[in-house]
């Protein structure tokens, strides 16, 4: 174990946070969630964000993924200063650069596996044939080619999450964000999904930021960043 604070080493940063702060307003009361976050995550990293509940780890993830905005500081992710983008630009940016994996998979129940994976491609202007090729590739990668026409309710939890992973990578984003991706899965399925994510990181070079409170899941990442009451506590390099 190495306890170099906040230095994940490696090459060019894909994520750079400077003095990022986030607070919520409950009536007139300001509740700080994150304070003074400085962080660089190099391209190709696999980072687990950890910390007790209320430590701000999900908020940090949302800021990095561009679905929430900071109240202070700046973020540069995938080559863009996020504060400089308006909501619509941010939406296209997410479509281009970020893949999402959620705890509850969040597949659209009325669409089958193929169509679920196809969804983000509808925004890219890719033609029908190209879309099909890419969806099939993504589904092959998560090993669900034979379940392409199944609806979410016809899939197991593990399979659903793998479809969700396929949906996250189908646009070939640089960054994958995952919020408790194994939170709803049993040990065996969780292991499978984690192995898949490890492959995506190792073989395809995807940068992954994952929020988890499960040490076993966090063990799959290469670095662990611990948050405590809204500030970075320490980083740990994982020896695998």
């Amino acid at each position: 174990m190495n306890s170099d604070r906040f230095d994940l080493g490696g090459g060019e940063p894909i994520i750079t946070l400077r003095d990022v702060a986030k607070s919520y307003w409950r009536e007139a009361l300001e509740i700080p969630v994150l304070q003074g976050i400085d962080l660089e995550i190099p391209a190709g990293a696999y980072v687990a964000l950890m910390g007790p509940s209320g430590s701000g780890k999900t908020t940090l993830l949302n800021l990095i993924a561009g679905i929430d905005r900071p109240t202070g500081g700046s973020l540069e992710v995938c080559g863009h200063e996020l504060n400089g983008l308006d909501d619509d630009q941010l939406a296209s940016w997410r479509n281009l650069h970020v893949g999402f994996i959620f705890q509850n998979y969040n597949l659209v129940p009325v669409l089958n596996a193929f169509e679920n994976v196809e969804l983000p491609l509808l925004l890219t202007g890719a033609g029908r044939g190209e879309r099909r090729d890419r969806v099939e590739q993504a589904l092959a990668l998560v090993n669900l080619t034979d379940r392409m026409r199944n609806y979410p309710r016809q899939l197991s939890g593990g399979q659903e999450q793998r479809v969700a992973v396929a949906r996250a990578i189908v646009t070939d984003p640089d960054l994958l964000v995952a919020d408790e991706p194994t939170g709803a899965l049993d040990a065996k399925n969780a292991e499978e999904v984690l192995a898949l994510m490890e492959r995506l990181n190792a073989e395809l070079g995807k940068t992954i930021v994952m929020v988890t409170h499960d040490p076993k899941a966090a063990h799959h990442a290469r670095h662990q960043i611990h948050l405590e009451k809204g500030v970075l506590d320490r980083t740990v390099e994982v020896n695998r």
């Binding site: 619509d88 959620f102 509850n104 659209v108 983000p120």
Partner: peptide, 16 residues
């Protein structure tokens, strides 16, 4: 509600 949020996270603009 959740599904709409997921759509928007994936890059669907509010207008869309």
């Amino acid at each position: 509600t959740t599904e709409i949020a997921v759509f928007r996270a994936m890059g669907f603009s509010s207008a869309r």
